[in-house]
């Protein structure tokens, strides 16, 4: 299963390098959003709470733009049948999850890097900030991957993706925003341990439910 999953993930990376189906759209989105924020803020400084909120809004919409491709492009191009005939459903989910998680890490670190530069954001507790982003990324990619599988067979995929994923992501987003804000302020680990526990448990529950439900979604 693991070997099959990595082969599927490798195929997706090679396909992305050749087609740039997601990366180009994501880069354009990130650059446009960050530029709009820069122009609207001018020299004004935002509070830590506002910074954390805006950062996760950008991360959520960037993920909404790019992470659905893993399943949507297979359905649109009619290649999902080739994958169904070559691998177990669970390996497909794991492969797509690994790809989406890697893509989320790449785009989110790019977003954070640009955001820190344009807003001159000072993070007091860098270690806790990184832990929050890493856990948030895992949670985000796990939800976005199973929702991508779900919407790939629907007709209005573009609209459904953020609409379906937002309510599911709300607990994770609230915990991530709170933990990000507190880490920017420089709180101690004990101050955000509750949020981190929510993020870890949330991700475990979502991944477990995804593996239990994926067979039903994948086979028509």
């Amino acid at each position: 299963m693991i070997k099959q999953a990595f082969a599927i993930c490798k195929k997706d990376f090679s396909s992305e390098i050749r087609t740039r189906y997601a990366i180009n759209a994501l880069l354009m989105f990130i650059i446009v959003v960050i530029s709009i924020i820069k122009f609207s803020l001018g020299e004004e400084k935002l509070s830590s709470e506002m910074n954390a909120g805006i950062l996760w809004i950008i991360i959520f919409f960037a993920a909404s733009n790019g992470l659905s491709r893993v399943f949507v492009s297979e359905e649109e191009r009619g290649t999902s049948l080739a994958i169904k005939l070559s691998a177990e459903a669970k390996s497909v989910l794991l492969g797509k999850l690994i790809f989406n998680t890697s893509l989320t890490f790449i785009i989110n670190f790019f977003i954070i890097f640009l955001y820190i530069i344009i807003t001159d954001l000072k993070i007091s507790s860098i270690g806790l900030f990184l832990i929050t982003i890493i856990l948030g990324n895992f949670g985000l990619s796990s939800v976005m991957t199973i929702i991508a599988a779900l919407i790939s067979k629907a007709s209005s995929k573009g609209t459904l993706y953020p609409v379906l994923s937002f309510p599911l992501l709300l607990p994770l987003l609230l915990a991530s925003i709170s933990a990000t804000w507190l880490s920017i302020e420089g709180t101690a680990f004990s101050g955000i341990s509750g949020e981190l526990q929510i993020m870890v448990s949330y991700t475990i529950v979502v991944i477990t439910a995804s593996f239990l439900l994926f067979d039903l979604i994948w086979n028509d």
């Binding site: 099959q4 082969a7 195929k11 090679s14 396909s15 050749r18 087609t19 009619g78 049948l81 070559s86």
Partner: peptide, 23 residues
């Protein structure tokens, strides 16, 4: 007729990818 392979890869690469996935 509903089966499609990957347009962005060569014929050989398509079969290599499928072999890798099949293990």
């Amino acid at each position: 007729p509903y089966l499609n392979l990957y347009d962005e890869f060569t014929g050989y690469e398509n079969l290599k990818i499928i072999s890798n996935i099949r293990g």
